[in-house]
Structure formats: C-alpha cells, structure tokens
Write a protein that binds this DNA or RNA. Structure first.
Length: 885
DNA sequence: TCATTCACG
DNA sequence: ACGTACGTGAATGAG
C-alpha cells in the first residue's frame, strides 16, 4: 500500500538550525541546518520506507492570514542570515535526492500539507506528516499520523488521534481551540492574556471549544471571567488564525510526489557538493555518482564466526589485531550484571564468544588479553564491562576508547547514547534496538545463538567504525585532551573505587533503623489521633484531603494533580494546626528510614559487607558524576538526625581512618577566575569569608558591621549568581518580593561588574555559537537559547551562565582524582580513594599514612588546575564518615 | 510509567 | 505577559 510522507520544510529546517552546532563547508557556507534536515530525512526514509514524499515550504511574506490580522507573525525575529543562505542549498539537495517540493505564493507550508492530508483522508491514503509545529496535530485522523520532532530533530514522536486524546484529552480539531485560547507568541497570535496551556486545557475539558467557552462565561468567575469576556474577539480571531487552510488550489497529482529511492548518480554529487562525507560514506555513494539505484537503507551484511572450544587456542595470534570489542551485559547495576557474551571485530570478520566459553580454563588467551593493560581495548561502556567482568572473576584493563563516553562528551545532554542511536547519528549501518532483540523488563530473553552473535557482532563492527568519526569530531571541538587524558583515565579510576566499595556497619545501621522506627510509630499514632482517622500519610492525595478538606487549612500551592504538601507549604501551615509539625517530622524520619536505612541495607554486598556504588560518567549535562545503587552522593548531612547515617560508613580495615577533603567555595572561585572580576578575585586571594565579604560590598558597610541576616542574604545572592540569577528565584529563596530581589541583584552587579560582564557575555556567546564550554573545553549545546518561548529561552540563558561554572568545578575535581590516583601510586601508599561527592573526596587511610595523606590530599586538590585565584581544600578525618567533618 | 517529595552538592 | 533558581537519584503512591 502507498505510504505518503509530507514534510513541513520551514519548520524542520528551523529546528535543525538551532539544534545543530554551527557547521560550514570549505567555502564558508553554513550547512548545519541542511545537514540536520538531511540526517533526519534519511532516517525517516529508512524507517518508514514511503512511496511518496514531499517537502512543503512557505512562500511569500504576505499570506492570506495577514488580510484579517496585520500583525500575524509580527515581532518575530528575522531569520538569521546563516539560516537563510541554507534554503537554496536544501532545495538543491532535495532535487538531487529525487524528492518533490511544493510552495505556493501566499500560502504557508501548513496549508499545503493540510490540503494534501484532506485529499488523502478522502481517498483513504495513509499519510505521515513531519513537523516541529504542534498546531499541525489538528490534521491527525485515522489516515493521518503527525510526527512531531523532539529534542531538536533527533527524535520524532508519532501522534494519532488516540495519542492526542491521551496526552491532552482533546480531539485533533480541538488543538485549534487550544491555540485560540492560549495564543502563540512565535506567530504573534494573541489568544487570551493570562491563559496558558494549563488553563486552556481546563477550559476545553469543561466546555469543548472556544465558542462554547465564550457562550458560557457565566459559569466562570473572578479575573478569569473578566479576561475571557474582554478578549472574546481575540480568541475568535486567534482560532481563525490557527486553523490550517485545507483548500489550497493545488493542481498536482500524487504521481508528482512519488519517490522511488535514492539514485546514486544524482544524490551522490548533491551530497558531495555540500561536503557531507559521512552521509556519502554511509550510503556508500561516490561523489561523482555511479551506476544504478541503491536502496534507501540496508542492514549491513555480517560475517560472524562463532567461537567453539577447539578454536580458542588459535585466538592468541588474533587478539592483537582486534579493532573493537563488545561485551554484552544484562542488568542495570553493573556490579550485579550478568555477562552474555563478547564480540570482536578484526577487519571484515567478527568473532562471537559465548560467556560460558570465556569462563573455561581453555579461554586463557582471551582472558589474558582482556586483563593485559597494554593490550588496548576499544568498545562501548567499558566502565560497565570492567565491573561486570570483575565480579565474574575476569580482569579487564587497557580501555583506550569508549564510544559511549565519547558520545557523551560530544553531546552530554543526549540521553540516548545507545549504540543504536550512535550508529544512526553517524549514518553507520543500523543496529536493531536491544529491546527488539532481547525484549524488555520481565520479558527479557536471549534469542537464538546465531541471532545473538549477529547482533553483538554488528555492535562491535559499528564501534570500530564510530571511533574515527568521533575522534575527528573530538579534534574539531578541541576535546581530545579532555577525552584521552581526563575522562578515559578517570573511567578506570572510578571502576577501581567502585570495586573497592565502602564498608558499612550493618549492626549500627539496623540499630539506627530501630530508633527511627520507634519515633515513626509514635508520630503515626499522634497524627491519626489528631486527624481523627487513619490514613496513608505517605499519600499526598490522602494527606491533602485531611489537611485542606477535613481540617480546612489554607491552600498555599497546587500541583497539577492536586494540593501541594511539600515541606515549603507545610512550614507555612505549621502555625495553623499542630498536626503539621508532626507530619514534617514524620516525613523527615520516613525519608531516613526508607531511603537511607532500608535502602542502604538492601545494597550491602553479602560478599564484601560493603556498598559498591556505581558512578555514572555519562549522565550529568554539566560534566559532574552521578552515583547509583546506592547513591552515595546524597547521604544526609544538613540535619543532625540524618547526619547520624554517616556513622555507619567505616574503614574496611582495622585501625584505619576515613579521611575526607572538600573544596572550599570552588564554584565561586571558578567564577572569580572566568569572570576576572577584580573584587571577587581579591576576596579569594585574601581568603576572606566570601558571603560576609559580599554582604559588606553590596551593603557598603565594613565587614564587622555585617550581621547574620545580611550575610544570609548575600549567601543566597551568591548561590543565585552561580545558578544563573533571576529576581524570581532569589525572591523565592529569601522569601522577599521580586522587586526587593531585583534590587539586591542590581546592587550586586554594581559592585561586581566583572561578574555582570561575564553573565552578559556568556549568554551572547551561547546565542552566537549555540553552546557554552568549560575551562577544559567540555561543551554543552543550548538549542533553546534563541527560542521565542520566554521560558525555554530564559532556562537556556541561566544554563549558559551556570554550566561553565559547575562544569569547570567538575573538570577540576576530576583532574584532582586522576592526579591523586597517580600520587597514591608514586608514593606507594595503601590508602584508597573511595568516593567523590562533587566537591569532596573520601578516602580510607591506614594509621601510618595519616600524616602523609593529611597533606597530600589537599595539596593535590589545590594544585589540580592553576587559576587566577587559589583553590582551597579542607581536610578532616575520623573513625567513620560522620567523624570526618 | 509518571508525579511528588526530599536527600545531596 | 511569561512564572524558574543549577545539577542529580530513590522511594512512594496512583493510574
């Protein structure tokens, strides 16, 4: 059956432009948007194999929509010239790819697509519409699916009427009403002021359509009613503007958009002209064009040798030639993961070794190779591989290139760093998603051995092919040092720390749990008795009913599902009713009990009596680590009750100590360095109390005159500065008005002018380049920095301010870890690095090394990277983590 | 699976 | 006019 694909050209190229890093060809022409468009297009062609394809473009500045409303699309930022110049390139390329393009003076791409989908509906043809514009959901029907881009253009979410119903509770046509009510800033469609998506949805669920809302304003009250009545005309007009016109006079036939696959002789030269080498390679086209048609996509042929016991001896000679390996594991927690098997790629041949075979004694050539740190390994998520193999008694050393880690550095916000995604990103032969091979969750099941072998072999093959492409991109981004000299070495260090683990005193932890248990049950009884009924205190829904319906306490804040009952709200309610204080206490203890007592107990290894966390190196967008199974980066410290938990973390050997060292004010020191702000630098050069100093400068009083309240405010401002300040955020934090907060910020910037300049410059830089970097060239793309949506843009701006600071601090402690690992070796020390908590390192140290370590650790941390202000690290130690304070 | 809450830096 | 402070992970309830 025919499958039609209709693409909203303007919408997609715009998205691609902002989602892709700048890219120019040798003649300086920008090509990033065309590249993004093309990769997406090729993927769609491969996935959906359409028989007809068409790309629609807007034509003419004035459309029929302007006739009734002059301001339509007014106030919109002019298309950047870097993008405008790419339209002709895209059109030429589409011609080369054999794809039809429509545009018609006075109409937008939406209208052309709307018309074609109407025709398709009438003729019962299946259509897929591709766009970045949510309004197009109004076209969805039994025949018509709408694919909306997500996260730039890398993901597409398919919508049919059922999915729209599920997500918004609306029919496709009600999408028009939605926009009529809420408007659309990017098209300058007004809607009703003060009505956003939430309110609009509520109104539509209640009434059904814009007209029904306007006819029934009597059922509304207050400000809402007033606003809707005043702006009734705006709503009617907005709805009209948002309605896609589906009667464009098109004299085209379906034949004119038929697509018969890529032809090398036209597609090759078109791609070559734009210098899209990776695409050419992936399609195995030559730049000059060649013979015959090539299918749009193909799963590569694979040549796998399944290794049997009798072949093991022959492998010894093969091992040095291995270009890439893939070890498949199963299980979220790598310390408890099983190992399925291993694939090796050597030239055009792949080898598959079932794990049972690898465990045999006869497999020692293989195991020796795996454990030999001089034999380089290139693979995917080698950190996990190392851990999984370790717990099965197999040593893994010599990781030289990890494509997952490289993928993370090249785009740390891309949460999908699977090989399937990486292969697609680099236009390599596609890898079937693991889910399709193994099934997911409880349905996980190993496929037949030949299927498994082929899947793993394909992975190994793709890893080998990814490496040169990633290496090149790393070089282009000046991230080679970051990757090879920091992140790769760190990956091994983390694995060592995790294998080592940290000892937990189980008895003490259980005893602590009993104490908590007693207090909790007492509180529960009191709460029931005050409430006059038993209910589940953990249920926010039931708690809300008790507090607000039964006891009639004032509603401070709502969530989208009901009443908010978070700590902030409860603090405000405390004066009204004695139950609230009890609930706060209950919450605190219940958290400690479930997460830290019970949660930790579950994670203690029966084998070692320790907890072995898993530090993830490819998650945080800023370059920080994260910690799982258990998370040891959020063990309580702020409140004494919780802090007691730290007493159960003890040295693993008799007579040893826990030693902890943390950076003092590392983020503000980093800010002083990168902003080059004279006053901030001065504060650190003289090692002053930074919050007091800030208060004294901002309030213009001598340091002695700074009282605790002034210092507290200054501290909040300093936090705000690091997070990318906003008056709203600061006002929330300090419980003051937005105006007062704005005044604070103003005063701060008056004094710290270098900081102000940094904040302005970094946002400009992000807008220009589409990304920000840390001191070590770690990079984070901010596709939304030029968004027309205020919230998205503001968020991106704050991120632009925060990421270089938080990210550079992460760079520094990572450097310190690599240097510390080296120092422990060169000094022949038995002390072990156990944990990293963002600005803190935790060690276990034998008695006779305490004096050495007390100096060595802070000295190494302070010397990790030379800044224009000194770094400071403070060290402490004791018989457990609590005492090391 | 999503939303809410809360622990950390 | 808009309505959030930056970055994480775990436990719980509800659908």
């Amino acid at each position: 059956m025919d499958k039609l694909m209709l693409i909203d050209g303007n919408s997609i190229i715009y998205r691609a432009f902002f989602a892709m890093p700048p890219l120019t060809n040798s003649s300086g022409l920008h090509t990033n948007a065309v590249y993004g468009f093309t990769t997406m297009l090729l993927r769609l062609l491969e996935e959906h194999k359409p028989t007809h394809v068409m790309v629609a473009f807007d034509a003419g500045k004035i459309t029929f929509r302007h006739e009734g409303y002059q301001e339509y699309k007014g106030g919109r930022q002019k298309t950047p010239p870097e993008l405008s110049e790419q339209f002709p390139l895209l059109k030429e390329l589409l011609t080369g790819l054999g794809i039809a393009q429509f545009e018609l003076e006075g109409y937008e791409a939406d209208d052309i697509i709307g018309t074609l989908t109407r025709m398709a509906d009438e003729e019962s043809r299946k259509v897929l519409v591709i766009t970045g514009d949510k309004d197009m959901l109004q076209l969805a029907s039994e025949q018509v699916q709408v694919g909306l881009t997500r996260k730039g253009v890398t993901e597409i979410e398919l919508y049919d009427p059922a999915h729209i119903q599920e997500k918004y509770g609306l029919t496709p046509l009600q999408i028009i009403d939605l926009k009529g009510l809420m408007g659309d800033a990017s098209d300058n469609i007004p809607g009703i002021p003060g009505v956003g998506e939430k309110t609009a949805l509520k109104l539509l669920h209640q009434f059904g359509s814009v007209e029904d809302v306007l006819d029934n304003t009597g059922e509304l009250k207050g400000k809402m009613k007033e606003k809707i009545e005043t702006h009734a005309e705006d709503a009617r007009m907005s709805k009209k503007l948002a309605t896609i016109y589906r009667e464009v006079p098109l004299d085209k036939t379906w034949e004119s958009i038929a697509w018969s696959g890529l032809k090398e002789e036209t597609a090759g030269p078109a791609l070559a002209k734009l210098e899209f080498k990776s695409l050419l390679e992936r399609l195995s086209f030559s730049a000059g064009g060649g013979s015959g048609a090539v299918p749009a996509a193909a799963e590569a042929e694979i040549n796998v040798v399944i290794i049997k016991a009798e072949m093991l001896a022959e492998l010894e000679e093969l091992m040095p030639k291995v270009e890439a390996l893939h070890v498949e594991t199963y299980g979220e927690n790598p310390h408890r993961a099983s190992v399925i098997g291993m694939a090796l790629t050597v030239g055009d041949t792949q080898y598959y070794v079932p794990f049972e075979l690898l465990q045999e004694k006869a497999a020692s050539p293989l195991k020796d190779w795996l454990g030999n740190h001089e034999a380089v390994k290139r693979g995917y998520d080698l950190h996990r591989v190392d851990l999984a193999l370790h717990w099965h008694g197999i040593a893994f050393q010599g990781a030289a290139f990890d494509v997952q880690l490289a993928g993370y550095l090249l785009d740390p916000t891309d949460s999908n760093q699977t090989l399937t995604a990486l292969a697609a990103k680099y236009q390599l032969p596609s890898i079937q998603p693991d889910e399709e091979i193994f099934g997911k969750g409880a349905k996980y099941k190993l496929p037949a051995e030949d299927v498994l072998a082929a899947h793993l072999a394909r992975k190994a093959q793709v890893i080998a092919a990814l490496i040169p492409a990633q290496e090149e991109e790393l070089e282009r981004n000046e991230m080679q040092k970051l990757f090879h000299e920091l992140e790769m070495p760190l990956s091994r260090i983390l694995a060592d720390m995790e294998k080592q683990g940290i000892k937990v005193n189980t008895d003490d932890l259980k005893a602590l749990g009993q104490e908590f248990e007693q207090q909790i049950s007492k509180l529960v009884l009191e709460i029931y008795s005050i409430a006059g009924t038993e209910f589940n205190i953990n249920s926010t829904k039931q708690l809300g009913e008790i507090l607000f319906d039964k006891l009639g306490l004032p509603v401070i804040k709502k969530t989208k599902t009901g009443y908010s009952t978070d700590a902030e709200v409860l603090e405000k309610l405390a004066p009204y009713h004695e139950i609230v204080q009890h609930i706060l206490q209950y919450r605190q203890l219940a958290k400690l009990q479930s997460t830290y007592v019970e949660g930790l107990l579950k994670e203690i290894s029966a084998q070692t009596g320790k907890v072995h966390t898993y530090f993830r190196q490819t998650i945080a967008a800023t370059g920080r680590l994260s910690s799982q199974f258990p998370n040891l980066q959020n063990i309580p410290i702020r409140l004494e009750e919780g802090r007691k938990i730290r007493k159960v973390f003890v040295p693993s050997e008799e007579g040893w100590s826990i030693l902890a060292a943390d950076y003092s004010q590392i983020e503000l020191r980093v800010l002083a360095h990168i902003s080059d702000d004279a006053r901030l630098k001065e504060a650190f050069v003289h090692d002053m109390d930074i919050h007091t100093k800030t208060a004294s400068d901002v309030f213009g009083v001598p340091a002695e005159a700074v009282d605790s309240d002034m210092r507290r405010s200054a501290k909040a401002v300093n936090f705000g500065i690091v997070y990318g300040i906003s008056d709203y955020g600061l006002s929330q934090n300090l419980n003051i008005t937005r105006k007062e907060a704005a005044k604070f910020i103003d005063q701060y910037f008056e004094v710290f002018q270098g900081v102000r300049k940094y904040m302005d410059d970094i946002v400009q830089e992000a807008k220009r380049d589409g990304y920000v970097t840390t001191l070590l060239e770690r990079r984070r793309y901010l596709p939304e920095i030029n968004a027309s949506n205020f919230n998205l843009r503001s968020f991106a701006e704050r991120t632009a301010m925060n990421t270089p600071i938080q990210g550079t601090a992460a760079d520094i402690i990572k450097l310190a870890m690599v240097q510390m690992d080296e120092a422990l070796r060169t000094h022949n020390l038995r002390s072990r690095m156990l944990l990293q908590v963002h600005d803190e390192l935790v060690f276990e140290v034998p008695e006779d090394e305490l004096e050495t370590m007390k100096k060595l650790v802070p000295a190494t941390m302070e010397a990790a990277l030379q800044l224009s202000v000194p770094l400071k690290a403070e060290v402490s130690y004791g018989s457990n983590w609590y005492e090391a304070k």
